[in-house]
Amino acid sequence: MAPVTSPPDPAKVTDPPPGRYSSDAAGLGRLRAGAFVAPALALIAVFLVFPALWVIYLGLMNYRLTGLAAADPKFVGLDNFLQAISDPGFWDSTWLTFQFVLGSAVIGQVLLGFTIAWMLRDWRGPLKRIVEGLVILAWILPSAVVSFLWVALLDRDSGTLNALLGIEGFAWLLDHPMLSIIIFNTWRGTAFSMMLYGAALGNVPPSHLESARLAGASGWQQLRDVVFPHIRGHILTNLLLISLWTFNDFSPFLLTAGGPDGKSEVLAVHVYKTALQSGDLGYGAAISTVILLINLVVAVFYLRLLRSKR
């Protein structure tokens, strides 16, 4: 019986558009609805909004981990930001991060994850479970364990891979650091895409595929004209999530420590090295703010795509 609250604002509609369901479907009213979301909002404020604002504030200081500037930081305005955007090291890291996201997430994880899900869609029985289990295992093992295994695999003197290939002394992590971490992250993160696409493919009505097949559509045509339109939203959601995760991923550090000479120093590693190893917290915070902005841009880009169809 609670009065219907006013509809969402954008075009200043005076009445709810005909044919739309009420925006207050649960009939709680603003106050009670607000009370329900308040704990969640409080958590978000404390653990996400406040740290983000704090990072912006720190980015305006010459704050350091040690030394005089740790005891008595001074306000330096936009110096840190100007330093960041004029530092070629920062842009190198941004470019490497872009390669890392494109290579390991957008191409690697999505393609591999979809391929596995597509191939497994009609399988039943233990073999499917074994394949899925192995892929998921790569995902759920702790980073420290996994990176140790990969270091052991790729080591140039006594690595398993070099022993198998008979090319002892080939320095994967030094000569091809980006390729190494891209393959590593593809292997590591494919499970999420596989599971998401697996679920999405289950939603494609078999009758549509059946009719396509009867109409003589090839495998690729079935994918393009029947499957993709159905799972478009899943693909975009998946891309959004894994792009952002990969963008902020720190585990490459465990493999290459950003080296050699910064050749695999993605932004997450760059911030760690700047802020904690070199102790330049203020400058590190400024870079973090820029990363935050890049994340926002990426997110808005995907959300726009996602919305454009619906």
């Binding site: 350091r64 981990l65 040690t66 030394g67 005089l68 740790a70 005891a71 904690l276 190893q277 102790g279």
Partner: peptide
């Protein structure tokens, strides 16, 4: 790094070992 973060937040062990060259920056930071 770990020590600096510990000491910064008023935590850390009671008796700590540091490298001699950190003395200056640790002292300046308090």
């Amino acid at each position: 790094t770990k020590l600096s973060l510990d000491l910064k937040s008023g935590k850390g062990a009671d008796v700590i070992d540091i490298d001699g060259i950190w003395a200056g920056e640790f002292a300046e930071a308090g």
